[in-house]
């Protein structure tokens, strides 16, 4: 289970990076970045998974006394929760700049923006 999820995450990272590096339309680059972002999150959560254990929430089925033997690692989950929220902020900023780029240049093609190239 964790192995499958980790492999999927790695493949998603590679596919997202491929898209981000080869596309020319800036919106497509941003979309590819979000796919890579999802892959990274998947790998991080898979690292915390342990076979045969349950979610880190204590209730009647997971009493406090047995918690150490019954729950999976909560730290990667807390980190990924942060990463997803920050990911939306980063995506929103990239989209804002894409919109501004379109407003200034009338194009979304990054290869046509040569202001800083020499």
């Amino acid at each position: 289970m964790d192995w499958i999820a980790m492999a999927t995450g790695f493949i998603l990272i590679l596919m997202g990076l491929y898209g981000a590096l080869t596309e020319r339309n800036i919106l497509r680059i941003i979309v590819s970045f979000t796919v890579a972002n999802t892959g990274v999150n998947l790998v991080l959560v898979a690292v915390g998974y342990m076979h045969g254990r349950t979610a880190p929430i204590l209730d009647k089925t997971v009493p406090v006394a047995e918690a150490v033997a019954r729950i999976i690692d909560p730290v990667p989950q807390a980190l990924v929760l942060t990463a997803i929220v920050i990911g939306l902020g980063v995506t929103a900023m990239m989209l804002t700049y894409a919109y501004k780029l379109y407003e200034e240049k009338g194009t979304l093609d990054v290869s046509k923006c040569r202001d800083l190239k020499w």
Binding site: P56, L58, V64, A67, V68, I71, D73, P74, A78
Partner: peptide
């Protein structure tokens, strides 16, 4: 993780350990 699993319920009283972290 072991520290969080053992101490969250007594010290903080939260059932969801991810929230406590």
């Amino acid at each position: 993780a072991r520290y969080y699993a053992e101490h969250t319920a007594q010290d903080l009283g939260a059932a969801n350990i991810v929230t406590a972290i």
